[in-house]
Design a protein around this nucleic acid. Structure first.
Length: 362
DNA sequence: TCTGGGGTCCTAGGACCC
DNA sequence: TCTGGGGTCCTAGGACCC
């Protein structure tokens, strides 16, 4: 921490913890180091319909990966150690990491449990990145990788190139050289579906997309998404690092049942329980609810949602439960149900009361 | 490999209003 | 009454990310 951050040009850094969940678990259980470990669900690999949140490199050697059903992981690697997900532990570790980053003369924007953007002015961003890595490791025992860029998009991609435990710089100056030959889904925001659709238009690489006509892209992907894809391919992106805490837009709870539900009163009972849970979460967060939606995933895997806007914002559990059940009533529930969910949209904070006096004056 | 849970944002179509 | 044009709100679904 040499303190040169008041001078020099501005940079965006992306700090990404390496194998975050597995690393936190191994800190608590050093005896498991070097063994195949899989984390997910309640840690019971025989329970159907639960998947791995993460797998250590030793487990990956057996073909196990995150998102894989635990039962499959067990078959591939019977000697693996299966651990339950422990959200509070990950949140606590994450807090420690973010607090460490905030001790530097930089701006820190938390972007999830295991990553953050850092805004800084310096003549030597590699030195700053190395300082951040050392400080996080010393304070928490966790390893991270750091990407350096002119904006968040570049820094985010750079940190992936830096993995594991490294530092990498990707800027507008080196964008074409580093990115143009890669497939379009190497960009942050382009997934499998969009990549396939782009390929159908003859656009396979980042260079192809960068050379495409934005108006043509708008016709196929919409007025916002089309031009945005073009921007992504040129390595453009948001460069402002915002330190004010994120204000959640909504909240949800959902459950996949080990066996399908067919009984209507069971289904209603589960939706009530989810609605009460979401209401309690909202009350704890001090947020009023303006919309309630119910999600039903039918067997084998058909997902449908129904939603309803409330007449007035509320946090009342009885009212939210009543609305959730009314929305549930709009589904055709003749097929077996494998998942139920209740989601709410929050009113913007401080927006609960209508400002009718101001309106009257206009 | 029979496929979690929790988020965000965008799009399209219909209702409704002037 | 054979049919405009714009704006806003609401709903359902989709894509993406961690």
């Amino acid at each position: 921490m040499t303190g040169p951050e008041e001078s020099g040009r501005g940079w965006v850094l992306h700090v990404d913890l390496d194998q975050f969940i597995a690393a936190v678990e191994l800190l608590r259980r050093p005896e498991l180091r070097g063994r195949p470990v899989v984390v997910g669900g309640t840690g019971d690999p025989t329970r159907p319909r639960t998947v791995a949140a993460t797998a250590t490199y030793e487990a990956r050697a057996y073909g196990v990966h995150s998102g894989m059903p635990l039962r499959t992981a067990l078959r591939l690697c019977p000697e693996a150690v299966f651990l339950p997900s422990d959200r509070p532990a990950y949140e606590a570790a994450s807090e420690q990491v973010m607090a460490t980053l905030r001790r530097f003369p930089v701006r820190v924007e938390v972007w999830g449990w295991d990553e953050a953007f850092v805004g800084a002015r310096t003549d030597d961003p590699e030195a700053l990145a190395a300082d951040l890595r050392r400080a996080v490791l010393a304070a928490t025992g966790l390893s991270c990788s750091v990407g350096i860029g002119d904006n968040k998009h570049q820094a985010k991609l750079a940190s992936a190139f830096a993995k594991p435990a490294g530092v990498h710089r990707l800027t507008t100056g080196t964008w074409a050289q580093q990115m143009y030959e890669r497939p379009t889904d190497a960009l942050w925001g382009i997934g499998a579906k969009t990549a396939r659709k782009l390929a159908g238009l003859g656009l396979h690489t980042v260079a192809d997309l960068a050379a495409a006509d934005p108006a043509e892209l708008a016709r196929h992907f919409g007025p916002v998404n089309g031009p945005w894809l073009h921007h992504l391919a040129h390595g453009r992106g948001e460069s402002e690092v915002v330190t004010t805490p994120w204000v959640p837009r909504g909240h949800s709870r959902e459950t996949t049942f080990p066996q399908d539900l067919t009984d209507a009163s069971d289904i209603a009972g589960q939706v009530s329980a989810l609605a009460r849970q979401v209401a309690s979460d909202a009350a704890e967060a001090g947020r009023a609810v303006v919309r309630v939606s119910v999600k039903v995933r039918f067997a084998p895997f058909l997902t449908r949602t129904r939603q309803s806007r409330l007449a007035a914002p509320t946090t009342d559990p009885a009212e939210l439960t009543r609305v959730a059940l009314a929305v549930l009533g709009r589904f055709d529930l003749t097929r077996p149900v494998r998942l139920l969910g209740v989601a709410v949209e929050y009113a913007p904070p401080g927006d609960e009361a209508p400002a009718y006096t101001l309106t009257a004056l206009e």
